[in-house]
Design a protein around this nucleic acid. Sequence first.
DNA 1: CAGGGCGGTTAGCGGTCGTTAACCTGAAGG
DNA 2: CCTTCAGGTTAACGACCGCTAACCGCCCTG
Lengths: 203, 203
Amino acid sequence: MATRTDAPTRREQILKEAARLFAERGFHGVGVDEIGAAVGISGPGLYRHFAGKDAMLAELLVGISDSLLTGAKRRLAEADGVTGSDPGPGAVLDSLIEGHIDFALDDRPLITLHDRELDRLRDADRKLVRQLQRQYVELWVGVLREVYPAVPEPSARSAVHSVFGLLNSTPHLGRPGSLPGRAVTAALLHRMARGAFAAVGEG
Amino acid sequence: MATRTDAPTRREQILKEAARLFAERGFHGVGVDEIGAAVGISGPGLYRHFAGKDAMLAELLVGISDSLLTGAKRRLAEADGVTGSDPGPGAVLDSLIEGHIDFALDDRPLITLHDRELDRLRDADRKLVRQLQRQYVELWVGVLREVYPAVPEPSARSAVHSVFGLLNSTPHLGRPGSLPGRAVTAALLHRMARGAFAAVGEG
DNA sequence: CAGGGCGGTTAGCGGTCGTTAACCTGAAGG
DNA sequence: CCTTCAGGTTAACGACCGCTAACCGCCCTG
């Protein structure tokens, strides 16, 4: 449970650069030599750390999905855990939105990969990722229907997917420097997400 | 201005299948033999219709961007053109949203390609596509700021990009059959888009 | 100080890919 | 009836890619 704030291990360097390159040019558009060059070693040296190119993508996608789900579960538990002072479902929804926005703003390449290169995985890995993604969606759907009980489940699920589309649009918002500031962007996205959900709930 | 309701020409068949395959497996993940097989000819026969694989992608992406922009301009002109009975900026915004939703629901592969494979284009084509996309965005921004004049331009632009993310999420909403019906989905997306914009405007 | 293994290197193999070359066929036109 | 040509075919080439093989040096440890 330590290892953070340490210098990044070589595996982590590789994963980070691979994520960036995959997001920029697509999984098939990046050669192993380029990934190696991005971390200062060249080509086949990567195979001391990963079984192959596929394994890097698999670890990235499983990691993203797992991290999103774990974070959401934690936020849900924190909300339910505070005995006595129930924050209300609206606050839980806000917390989920906030967590997703943090992820979308801080790990743009991963967000990009997450819904783009899933089909390049081996069957077992793809099933795992899809299962994690589905759990994440269902968790949001549950919270959303606590806030807006009148919304039928299929609509809620569609709404959640659409809001993910909205929040995951950060890669299109220009380079990290051209934004009006991270906090401002986060607040804007948050309000839009709530507004989109509200429009569903008040139907 | 005829040619529609005719049998699709071979070029059109190829473009349609290529779009589907590119969207499913990525530009680099599809071989020319597969594209050929999808239209009943095999491999190099495609070169009787296109200069190369890149040319197919270019024609697809330019076509999408141009079609989106042209449709939006037409809707804007229709609104401004009705002398006397100005429909109001809100109705124009609704019309833009409706047009984009139609596109997202009817041409899912193209929507997918549109923000995914842009970097695979030659410089000249990429610049053209980006220019068309930019015009499309600015057109939306203008209309949005008529509806919500208090929204500063950078926020409006971010909001437009985010709503595109929302509307373009249709590929994630399950296969075309599993949806609650096209009209229902379209209405849901429309309300969410308006809700998201309203949340920005009422800030 | 011997040795072992971690983390690199370069060379090269097998397969695939985009593209070209050369050839063929069936239908239209004078 | 001969020609032309659009629209196919198969063969093959050169480039590239993922991956393995073989080798090597450095550091750690007994």
